[in-house]
Deep mutational scan, measured.
Amino acid sequence: EPIEAIAKFDYVGRSARELSFKKGASLLLYHRASEDWWEGRHNGIDGLVPHQYIVVQD
């Protein structure tokens, strides 16, 4: 079951695997890939989301 998150800041992906998004964007998170990253989805694209840039919705 994906988790919803909201972007705290704009983020520009630094590689093809990283998602880019704007502050306030809604993201879906699948699972924690590491301490710093989530596997997630934004605008229909799957990729990595940096933990420091999002607020996970409970």
Rank of each mutant, 00 (worst) to 15 (best):
K22T: 12
Q52S: 10
W37A: 08
R41D: 15
E35V: 13
S34P: 02
S15D: 14
D58C: 04
E18I: 10
K8D: 07
Y30K: 14
I54F: 04
D46N: 09
A5L: 01
K23T: 10
D10H: 07
I45H: 10
I3G: 05
H42E: 06
Y30C: 10
E39C: 05
F9V: 07
L29K: 00
A16S: 08
P50N: 10
D46M: 15
L28N: 06
R32P: 07
R17A: 11
K8F: 05
G40T: 01
E18F: 09
P50H: 11
S15A: 11
V49T: 03
S20A: 07
R17N: 07
P50M: 07
S15M: 14
N43A: 09
Q52R: 12
S20T: 12
G44S: 12
G44D: 15
G40Y: 00
K22L: 10
D10V: 02
H42T: 09
E39N: 13
E4L: 05
W38D: 01
A5Q: 01
E39Q: 10
Y11F: 09
R41F: 15
Y53G: 13
G24C: 06
L27Q: 01
S34I: 04
I54P: 03
V12A: 13
N43M: 15
K23W: 03
K8S: 10
I3N: 04
G13M: 10
A33P: 12
V12Q: 14
R41A: 13
D58L: 02
A5T: 07
E1S: 09
P50A: 12
G24V: 00
G24E: 11
Y11Q: 02
I3S: 04
D10Y: 04
Q52E: 11
I54E: 01
E35L: 08
F9Q: 14
W37Y: 13
I6G: 04
D46Q: 11
G13H: 04
V12W: 05
P50V: 02
H51D: 08
R41I: 08
W38Q: 00
F21A: 00
D10T: 10
R14S: 04
A25R: 07
E18W: 02
L48G: 03
E4D: 06
Y53S: 12
F21L: 04
E35M: 13
G40W: 00
G47C: 02
R14T: 08
I6R: 13
E1N: 14
L48D: 03
A25W: 06
R41K: 10
K8M: 10
A25C: 11
R32G: 02
E39S: 08
R14M: 09
S15W: 10
A33Y: 15
A33G: 10
H42K: 08
W38E: 00
R17Y: 14
G24H: 15
L27S: 01
H31D: 14
K22H: 09
Y53M: 13
L28A: 14
E1Y: 05
W37K: 04
R41W: 14
G40R: 00
G47D: 00
Q52C: 13
F21N: 00
E18C: 07
I54D: 01
I45M: 09
W38G: 00
D46I: 11
K22Y: 08
G40M: 01
L19A: 03
R32C: 04
A33C: 11
L28Y: 11
Y11I: 02
I6W: 07
